[in-house]
Structures are given as C-alpha cells and as structure tokens.
Design a protein around this nucleic acid. Structure first.
Lengths: 246, 246
DNA sequence: CCTGACTGTCACATCAGTGTCACATTCATC
DNA sequence: GATGAATGTGACACTGATGTGACAGTCAGG
C-alpha cells in the first residue's frame, strides 16, 4: 500500500550504479531508491557493462576503480556502442585519483564526483545531469511527430485524435517515446514493461506491438490510415521512427 | 456546521509545510489552519517530498535548511516530477542564508521569505502566490464542462440542475475538479478524501465513485442520462474527462 | 429509542486486457 | 525464386479489475 508514489510516477527513471565497495553501493542504491528511482546495481566493470546493454538505463553511475574493468573502460565501451552512447554517465573516484577528472570527462562522462560525498549530493547531481541531457524525462508530455502522450492523464493522441490504449500498450509507447529511434529488443521491452523476472513468451511482445500499431494507425473516420511510426528491426526489436525506409 | 465567512471558500486548499524547527512549524501550521487551509506538516526534507507526492497539495512551504534533504533539493525534485511540477512553492530561510534568494527562485520557488516573519505575513504570501498561480482555487466555483461545484455552499450542479452529494462524494469530486484529466489512484483518493492513515478498503473508493457517477449522470426528469465525465483508468485510478474515448 | 442520511463491506455480475496459438506474410540468403 | 526463420495478426479462453445492488453499522437530531 505504499508503492503508490513509485507506481504512480509516470515515468520511472532507471539508474544503473556500479561500485565494487559493497557498503557504498548499498548506501547509494538505497538513497536513489528512496528518491523514486528504479535502481540496478553492478559490482564490477564487466557486470556494469552487461547490465547497461541489457537495461538501457536513463543514467549510469560508475566507480573509477573496479575489478575486471575500470570505470574508464566501461565508459569507453558504452560510448562506443550506438545504443548506449547517449546515456549520461557520472564517474566517481576516490580522493587521490584526482587529476583524472579531465580524463573522466574526456572519455565522455557527463559529471565527475570525488569521494567522499553525501548520498544527497549524488542524488542532486543525478537530477542535474538528467535535466541537462534528457529534458524529455522531465516533461509532462512526450511527443514524436504527430503523436502526443500525456503521462499525467495516461492519455495519447495522434494528429489530435484521442487514442485508447491498454496499460501495456501505453507503457510500451511511453518507453519508445523516451528515446525515439532507439531499438528496443523484445527482452528489453519485457524487462521494462512487464517487469524484471516476469515470465511471458517473447511473441507476446509482438502481439502487443501489433495491437499498438493498429490503435495508433487506424483512423476512426473512414480516411486512410496514418503512417506507421513503429519500425520493426528484424532480428533486433522495435523502434519509433518516421519516414519508414519503405 | 454553517460558518459563514470569507474564508469559507478556502476550505479545500491543501498546504504542505516543512520545517525542522518544531515550534515554528506548529505556529505557522496553527495560523494557516485558522485561516481555513487544510494543513499537512513535515519535519524534514525527505518527509516533505514523500508527503508532497502523496498529497499533491495546492501549495508547499519549504524551509531552506532541513535534515535529510534541503529545501532546495526538495524543490528540485518536485519540479522534476510531472505531477508536482506545477505546485507553487514558498521557500523560507533564516537570516544569514540570504543571497541564496537567487538560487531559491532559480530552482523554481515561487516566492521567498526571510525569517523572521509574522505568521500573518506568511498567510498573505500564500494567498498572493495562490492567486497568481492557481486562480481557479481562489474562485468561488470549480467548473468542468457543464458541471459546477461551489465550495462555499458545498453544492454542485450539472447542466443547471442541483445535484445532492454526500460529504465523501463531494470531496472526491472537488479533488477531481481541481485537476481535470489528472489520474488519481485509489490510494491518493483515500489519502485526500478519507485522510492519511485511515484504513478502509480500496474497493470502498469504487463504491463511492459509482455513487458519485450515478448522482451526476441521472437526470431527474425522464430525459436520457447525461454523459459520464468520470473516466476509469484501469489499473490506475480515476480522472475527469469529457468525450470519453469509446 | 426512532429516523434518516451516510458509510464501509460483501457478493455477484461484467468486462477489458492479456497471453498463447495457429496460420498468414515477409525477409534474408542462397 | 526457393526455403527456413522471423514477424504480423485474428481468434479465443482466462483472469483480475471494476460496477453496483444489498445490507448492516454509525451517528446526529429529534
């Protein structure tokens, strides 16, 4: 009975945080969770990279020194992959590793914090970075082409006409709208929309996408249907995209 | 139960006030209550944020320095969430923290007061801010489509015809009318209408909504019933909406 | 005590949204 | 084009959420 706020929050912001120091990890994770973020943790560089690719979080927090792969390297890898290259990153480093600040920002980190810092400080930075790099996350309407989605009223309209969507379809569309162009695999959709650990067939995603497409494209008046904004990437997944390459 | 005074119309305005100084908190809370506001208090930043998300008050008063999370941070968080981003905020700070005024207004506060000030002064500011940012609240009537609700007389009419509502139904409708379109979860309704901490079944909300709908839609004369203005958002809650899709 | 207005809970009827199948299409590749 | 795999989609049974009438409890005012 107390999940209301998180559940009610229209868009859950996903944070991936990686640190090999277990206490630190738990402390920060707890604080982020308390602030309404959906947190995933990793305790070494390799794991961080794996989780990042899989979850496509909205922001990633990396410790500088980690086993198996340093934060710097993780950062480089993330920046090299098209799906993750735009995810904002905050680097953390222990005092004494300073001077690396330049290097950190150099490999593409969006912010850099030196330990020790208070969890509050981190939460504030996260918010600041998100506002800077993903303003759409903070907005109360998601738009793409002639499509508008209003999280507060759980309403969608296309070309001015209201569209009725089921909860799942609504969530899928919200997700796609957060990063137009980004291809989401069936597994990523299952994770984000159905929740991690829920078990349903992959094909279920297809069916929901079919329903979503039908709802979005069918025009009530007898006019011709609207162009499809959802692109199927064979072997990969789905993405929002205008001007389908036929 | 029939006080008639100018403050009557303010009965439904909810104020959240957060200050870690207990005396101050009680003093201000008392004065606001005396002026007809419905007051909720919080004694630290985190609590303020939680209460704010849960209650969606009409105005929030934040002390600058508080344990667990500063007023500034609370402000940032509130501004970042779609549901709370439009709630007006008044920041309070002790003398000596001045100069932060800019920062306060920067993170989105609507007004800024330096301690010490008289409770009367605060009440005046609250009134001013509300008039500026939520004129509908200061009006004598809440309207939506052909529906009118008069807070002062606790009466409702639809399409000119008076509608009799029970207290609970009236409160529910008041809430919905304050933010047409906004989806309220059963839990939010329970908090607002029944009060925080009161335990009743979720389903009770459904029953009251059913009664409310019946009261609003049934036309006394034999004419056809009126269209339903309350939208059920399956899995989420209820909201006011004209032109129900479908 | 009664009465009438309001409430909170149940129980039962419905219904919308889901997950799967099965079969039709499309696509990449040879 | 032939072929196998991937995707599109109508149909359908099922389940959990919601709508609502009925009923008993509470409370203020006679």
């Amino acid at each position: 009975m107390n999940f209301v706020n998180i559940e009610q929050r229209l868009m859950t912001i996903r944070v991936l945080i990686a640190d090999d120091e277990q206490n630190q990890l738990e402390l920060l994770s707890f604080n982020l969770t308390q602030n309404g973020y959906s947190v995933t943790t990793a305790s070494d560089g390799q794991e961080a990279l794996d989780r990042a690719e899989e979850l496509l979080p909205d922001i990633i927090i990396l410790d500088w020194m980690m086993p198996r792969m340093s934060g710097i390297d993780v950062c480089r890898h993330l920046r090299a992959m098209p799906e993750t290259k735009d995810i904002p990153i905050i680097m953390l480093s222990a005092r004494g590793e300073e001077g690396d600040r330049t290097l950190g920002l150099d490999v593409g980190a969006d912010d850099y914090m030196t330990k020790p810092f208070s969890p509050r400080e981190l939460v504030a930075r996260v918010r600041a970075v998100l506002r800077r790099s993903r303003p759409s996350l903070m907005s109360d309407v998601l738009e793409f082409e002639d499509l508008k989605l209003f999280p507060a009223s759980k309403t969608v309209e296309r070309d001015g006409e209201a569209i009725a969507l089921g909860p799942k379809e609504f969530k899928i569309l919200s997700l796609l709208l957060e990063r137009p162009g980004q291809v989401y695999s069936r597994n990523q959709l299952l994770d984000h929309v159905w929740g991690h650990g829920v078990y349903v067939e992959d094909r279920t995603v297809d069916v929901h996408l079919s329903r979503l497409r039908k709802a979005l494209n069918t025009r009530k008046g007898r006019g011709a249907d609207r162009p499809d904004l959802i692109r199927t990437v064979r072997g990969s997944g789905y993405a929002l995209m205008a001007n389908q390459p036929q």
